[in-house]
Design a binder for these strands. Structure first.
Lengths: 191, 191
DNA sequence: GCAGGACGCGCAATGTGCTTGCTTTCTTCA
DNA sequence: TGAAGAAAGCAAGCACATTGCGCGTCCTGC
C-alpha cells in the first residue's frame, strides 16, 4: 500500500501536475533560479570535480585571477548554491563493508506516522540516504552502511522494524559501486 | 531475472560467505583496516560533519594544536581513508528539480553486457549513483537528476533503454529528501 | 627496575595563499 | 556616443598551513 504508483510509463501525469514547470517563468521558479554566467558554471563544475581545489588552482582552471574567483565563490556560497563541502571517507578501509538499499512501505499514510518515521530514521547514523518516493513497491528508499551482516540484522530488527507503521521491508545489497558522486549535470543549466 | 534474490530474511547465507568477516583477523582484512586512535576518529567525524573546516578550526574541535592535526590529516589522506573533498550544490536552485531512483534489470547476465552497461551509465552526467545490487526486482539501482519530466523521458528513452541488455526499468520519483549525507557511521569503528 | 628508543605533541619560524581596497577596463543602456 | 554600472586585475596586508626542532611520555628490552 503506497502513495503513488509509477510503472515505467504509467501515471506520469499526476507527477507533472505536482511539479513546477521551469520552462515557463513562474514567480516561484524565478525566485529560486539564480542568474549564473559561464564563469560561475565553470567554477561550479570545477568544484564539483574536486572540492579540495585551492582558490588559486580554481582560478587558473576557470581562467580568472584569484581575486574575482574568490569573490564569486563567496557569492555562490551566500546564495546557497554551494550548500557545503563534504569529506568522503573510504568505507572499506574503516571496516564498513556492507551497503544496503532498503525499500520500506508504510501501512498507514498519516502525517504523524511519516513524521515519526522520518525523525527516527534521521537519528540513525547508519542511514546515509532516506527519500520519500513514489512507486508501488515502497514509500521510502534508504541507503544504509554497516560493518557486516550481523550488524545489519541487528539494525533492521532493533531499529527499523520497530518504528510504528513500517509494514514492509525489502533489502538489496550493494555488490559494486559503478558510479557514486554528488556532481550534478550542470550541462542542463543555461547561463 | 536477476543475479541474486534477497527477501527480507532469505538467502543471506551466500552473502555472508562472499563477504570477509572482520571479526576474525584474516590477512586481507588486516591489510585494509588501518589503525586509528580516538583522535583520528574525532578528526574524521569532524571532517564528515563539515568538510570546509580549516585546519585551525579542526584542531580546536578535536583538542589538538594545528601542527599535529595537519600531520594526521595528511596521513589519513595518504592512507586513502580520506578519499576526496566534494562540493555539494543545491539542485533546486540550479533548476534540477527532479530526482529519480531507477531499478534496472538485465535480460542476460554476461560480463560483456554488464561492462558495456556500466561504461555507458558512467558517461551520463545525469547519473549520480549506479550500484550493482542483489534482489529479485533489479540488477542495478540508479539515482538520476534531471530538470523535469520532459528531460527524464528523453533520458530514459534515448539513453537508458537503448543500452544492450536492459530489459526492465522501474522509476521511483523522489518527493522529499529526509536524509542525504556522505557521512559514515564511525561509531562502529573501534580505535 | 633502569636505560634506551620511538612516537607524538607543542612551539616557533617561514613560506604560501587568501582576502580586501583601489584602479582600470569592458559592457550596456540611454 | 557618452555615462554609469559591474567586474577584473593589481598590490598589500594578513591569516593560515606547514616544517624543523625540542621536550615529554610510553613502551620495550636488558
Amino acid at each position: 500500500m503506497c502513495l503513488l504508483s509509477s510503472p515505467i510509463f504509467g501515471l506520469m501525469s499526476n507527477i507533472i501536475a505536482q511539479r513546477p514547470r521551469f520552462t515557463e517563468k513562474s514567480p516561484m521558479s524565478s525566485a529560486k533560479l539564480a542568474k549564473l554566467d559561464r564563469t560561475d558554471l565553470r567554477i561550479l563544475q570545477a568544484l564539483q570535480g574536486n572540492g579540495g581545489l585551492s582558490n588559486q588552482q580554481l582560478a587558473e582552471a576557470v581562467g580568472l585571477s584569484p581575486s574575482p574567483c574568490s569573490r564569486r565563490v563567496q557569492k555562490l556560497e551566500a546564495a546557497g548554491i554551494i550548500i557545503k563541502r563534504e569529506t568522503v571517507l573510504d568505507a572499506r578501509k574503516l571496516g564498513l563493508d556492507l551497503t544496503v538499499m532498503i525499500q520500506i512501505s508504510m501501512d498507514r499514510h498519516t502525517p504523524e506516522r511519516f513524521a515519526n518515521f522520518e525523525e527516527k530514521v534521521a537519528s540513525f547514523p547508519e542511514v546515509q540516504q532516506c527519500y520519500l518516493v513514489t512507486g508501488q513497491d515502497a514509500d521510502y528508499l534508504l541507503k544504509v552502511v554497516v560493518p557486516d551482516i550481523d550488524a545489519y540484522q541487528h539494525f533492521l530488527l532493533n531499529q527499523i522494524t520497530r518504528i510504528d507503521g513500517v509494514s514492509g521491508v525489502h533489502s538489496s545489497f550493494v555488490m559494486r559501486r559503478v558510479v557514486d558522486t554528488a556532481a550534478l549535470p550542470l550541462n542542463y543549466v543555461e547561463p
